[in-house]
C-alpha cells in the first residue's frame, strides 16, 4: 500500500475574512491598542535602555575568556592544547615552551584566541585540566576597529585574571609538597 501522506485541511475562510476589511480593522485595532497603551504607560514595552540599563547575566553566562594564574602569579596554563583540540571553531592557537624546571616543565609561550571566530561554546573551559582558562568574566567581547584587535593574546587574556587554587594534576599533595 502506498504510504499515506498527512492530510492538512485547508483553513476555511469565513465571510468576514474573505471580505478582508473587517480583519484589517481588527488588526488595526490591535495596533492602535498597543500604540496608545505604550505611548502613555509603556504597558507592553520591555526594552532595556542599553547601555544605561543592563541585564545582569546568570553566573553560567559564557563571556570573554580569561586566563588564570597560580598562587605565585604565574600562568596556570601548561599548554596541553586540550582546549585547542576541543575547540570546534579552531580559534585557539598555543605554542608551548620549556620552563626549564622539573615541576611545571611546560607553559604557553603564545596563547592566542581569535574572539571573532569563537562561538562561545565553552568547550575549552570544560576541556582544561588545570582550570587555566575560564569564561566567567560576565563581559562581552568589546567592539574593535580592526580584525586583528579581536585576536586576544596572553596580555589581553590576563587583564581580568584571577588566582585559582584548584588542584592541578588531580593529586592534592602534588602541588603543595613541591
Amino acid at each position: 500500500m502506498a504510504k499515506k501522506g498527512i492530510v492538512v485541511s485547508k483553513h476555511k475562510y469565513t465571510l468576514s475574512e474573505k471580505l478582508y476589511y473587517p480583519e484589517i480593522f481588527k488588526g488595526m485595532g490591535v495596533s492602535i491598542r498597543h500604540f496608545f497603551a505604550n505611548i502613555f504607560k509603556k504597558k507592553y514595552t520591555v526594552t532595556l535602555q542599553y547601555p544605561e540599563q543592563k541585564e545582569s547575566y546568570t553566573e553560567r553566562f559564557r563571556g570573554k575568556h580569561r586566563l588564570m594564574t597560580r598562587e605565585d602569579g604565574s600562568l596556570r596554563c601548561v599548554a596541553c592544547m586540550m582546549c585547542a583540540t576541543a575547540c570546534p571553531a579552531e580559534c585557539i592557537y598555543i605554542e608551548a615552551e620549556d620552563v626549564g624546571d622539573s615541576l611545571v616543565e611546560k607553559r604557553a609561550k603564545l596563547f592566542v584566541i581569535d574572539e571573532l571566530r569563537c562561538i562561545f561554546c565553552g568547550l575549552c573551559v570544560e576541556a582544561c585540566p588545570t582550570d587555566a582558562i575560564r569564561m566567567d568574566t560576565g563581559e562581552h567581547v568589546e567592539p574593535e576597529y580592526t580584525r586583528e584587535a579581536f585576536i586576544y593574546d596572553k596580555k589581553k587574556l590576563l587583564q581580568k585574571t584571577g588566582r585559582s587554587v584548584a588542584i592541578q594534576g588531580g593529586d592534592s599533595d602534588y602541588i603543595h609538597k613541591n
Binding site: C80, P129, D171, Y174
Partner: peptide, 10 residues
C-alpha cells in the same frame, strides 16, 4: 604522576 597535559607521549 598522570602528567598527560605536559607529557609528550599523550
Amino acid at each position: 604522576p598522570i602528567d598527560c597535559p605536559i607529557c609528550d607521549q599523550a
